[in-house]
Nucleic acid binder design. Sequence first.
DNA 1: ATAATTCTCTGACCAGAGTCAGAGAATGGA
DNA 2: TCCATTCTCTGACTCTGGTCAGAGAATTAT
Lengths: 342, 342
Amino acid sequence: MDNAVIPSVRAFNRFVAERIGAVSDTFLGRDRPYGESRILWEVGSDGTDIRELRTRLGLDSGYASRVLQSLERQGLVIVKPAAEDGRVRRVRLTGKGRAERATLDRRADAVAWKFLEPLTEEQRTRLVAAMADVHRLLTSSMVSIEAESPSTADARWCIDQYFQELNRRFDQGFDPALSIPADAHELVPPRGALLIARLRGSPVGCGAVKFHGRAPAELKRMWVSPDVRGLGVGRRLLVALERAAREAGARVVRLETNRTLKEAIHLYRTSGYREVGRFNDEPYAHHWFEKRLTAPQRPSRGSRPGRRSSRSTPTAPSARASRSSPPRARPAPGPRQRAPRT
Amino acid sequence: MDNAVIPSVRAFNRFVAERIGAVSDTFLGRDRPYGESRILWEVGSDGTDIRELRTRLGLDSGYASRVLQSLERQGLVIVKPAAEDGRVRRVRLTGKGRAERATLDRRADAVAWKFLEPLTEEQRTRLVAAMADVHRLLTSSMVSIEAESPSTADARWCIDQYFQELNRRFDQGFDPALSIPADAHELVPPRGALLIARLRGSPVGCGAVKFHGRAPAELKRMWVSPDVRGLGVGRRLLVALERAAREAGARVVRLETNRTLKEAIHLYRTSGYREVGRFNDEPYAHHWFEKRLTAPQRPSRGSRPGRRSSRSTPTAPSARASRSSPPRARPAPGPRQRAPRT
DNA sequence: ATAATTCTCTGACCAGAGTCAGAGAATGGA
DNA sequence: TCCATTCTCTGACTCTGGTCAGAGAATTAT
C-alpha cells in the first residue's frame, strides 16, 4: 500500500509547492519584498506589540526591527512605545498601510480566482471540497498526543474547558464538586495519566485515565476542542489512553458518560466499547461502557515506508509526454521531473 | 458563492504553503543548498545536456554553470562535452551522485510518511483521494485554450496524434486520405479555426471548426491527450469551438464520429448534441450529431470575484482560539494570522 | 538601591540565489 | 570561407532574508 500512497503524497507535495509557489511569487507584485509584505499583513488592522509579532513569526529582533523601520519609512506603519511598558513598542498600520494591506488581500483573491475561473461550476465545488478534505486531514496529522502533568497551565486549561463544556451541555449544568473526582495527583504515574493533544503547540484536547492495578482502568476527562472536532483527535486520544491502561496492567477499561454527549457515545460504540450496567454512582452519568483490551499488539496502522519508492511517480495526469513528445524548439521539453520539493 | 469559495481556496493555499514549505526546508538536511539539490535531482540518472537542464528549470547560464561546478567539485556529477555537438556539455551523475540522489528520495519518502503516519487507514485513503482530486482539478485549471494556426509545429503534432489515435482505435484503421479533409487553409479565419489546449506550454489537445456562413458549422479534429483525459479539457474545447462558430454566424454546429470513440460520443450527448441522420458521406462515421447554438449569451460560469473578502477566513479547522485562548507564557500565541502566501 | 532581566535597536557580517555583460569555442548557413 | 548563432563559462554585482554580538533604556526582583 505504501508503494502507492507515499508516492502520491509526494507527487501532491511537489505539484502544490510548484503551483502555489509560482503563483504566490507573482502575487506580491514584486514592488515590496516578501518579508515586508508578510509583516505588514501580520501587524493586522489593530496593531500589535513588536514583541508579540516577533514571537508569532519567529523573527530575529534585529531583522524585525529593520523591516519595521523600512515599513515606517514608507509611511505604512507607526511604531511607538507601548503605554503600559516602556520597553515594548507597538506597531500600528497607518491609513496608507491599511490600504496596502487591502491591496494584498485583493491580489490574493485574484490569485484564488485564477485557480477557479477556468473550471465549471461542478468542478469548482469539487475542488473546494477536496481542498477542505486535504486541509482537514493534514491538520489532523499535525496533532500530537503526549502525556503531561495535570498541573501545567495547558493541562489545567484543557480540563477547565472540559468542565465548561459539560456545564453548557448537561441539562442540569455541571458542578465538578458533585462529580466523582479525578484530581491532579491521581492522573500522574503510577496512579494514572493525563494526555494532551496539541496542534502547533496549542492544546486542543485531553483525556485521562486512572489505573487500578489489574482491575479496570477508568477513562476520564475526554475533551476535544470544537476547533478540531471531526479530525479523529478523540479516537487517537482514546487509543493512546487504552495503550497506557494496557501498559499499566489493566485488562479492561471503563467509563461513564452523560446522554447529552452524543459524539462521545458514538466514538465509544464504534471503538469497541459496549454498554454495561451502572458500575459507579457518578450522578451525571447515564451510560456506562467498558472494553476488554486485547493483548499488547503492535500498533497496527500500516507498515513503515518502503525502502525506497520509484524515482519519479506522478499520480495525477501531467503533461508528461507519454507516447511521443510534442514538437519543440531546440531545447526539448521532454518528460519533466520536478525537484523533490518534499 | 465566491464569498465562500475564494476564501476557502485562499485558506488552502496559505495552509499548504506553510505546511509543505516548512517540511520541505527540513527535508534537505541543510547540508546542501536547495539549488544544488534541485539540480542534482533534475540531472536524473541518465544525465542531461546542460542546455536542456537550463531551459527546463529556467536557469541563468552563469548560475547553472556555477552550481554544476560546485556539484562536480563535490564529486557528485561529471560534466563533459557532448559527442554530437562540441558546444553543449553533458552532465551525468557519478556513483556518489546517484547515492546522494537516492538519499534525497528516501528523505522525501520519510516526509510524506510523516503526513500519513498519524492517520488511520481510512483517513489515509481519504487524504490520498482528496489530494488526487485537488491535483487533477488544479491541473485542469492550468490548461489554456487558444486559437492557433494549423501550420505551427504544435498544431501539426496534435493533429498527427489525433490521426494516430484514430488509426489505433478504428476497427479498420484510419487513413486521412479517405476521410473528408480539413486542410490547414480551411482552419484559419475566416473559413474556420483551430484551437489548441496547452498545459505548461505543451499542447495537450485540439479541436477545429469549419464555418459555412449561416449554415451549420462543422466540428473536426477533436482530440485530447490521454495524459489529461478526465480533466474536462474536451468539454472546454467544445464550448470554445461552439462560441467560435456562433461568432462566425452559425446557428447550428454538427459533427460526425466513429462508434469506437465512446468518450467523445458521451461528451457530445451530455453537451446538448442530439443524434441526427447522416448528413455527409464520411466513410469512417457511424454517428452524426448536431446542436442548435443559443443566442450570444454571456459566458455564464460564475461571477467575478467579489470586491474583497473578509480579512482572515479559515475554512477548515485550525488552532485558532475561538472561545478563550489556552494559557501561554508571556508572549501570547493569540489568534494567528498567516501571511497571505496566496 | 542595586542587580538581573526584558525588549529593542545598531552595526557587522553572511549565504543563497540570482542577474548581467562579455568572451571564447563550436557549429550552421549563405 | 566567413559571418552569425549557439552554448558555456567568468567576473562582477545585487537583493533577500537572515544571524550574532553588544549596547542602552525600562522594568522587575531582591
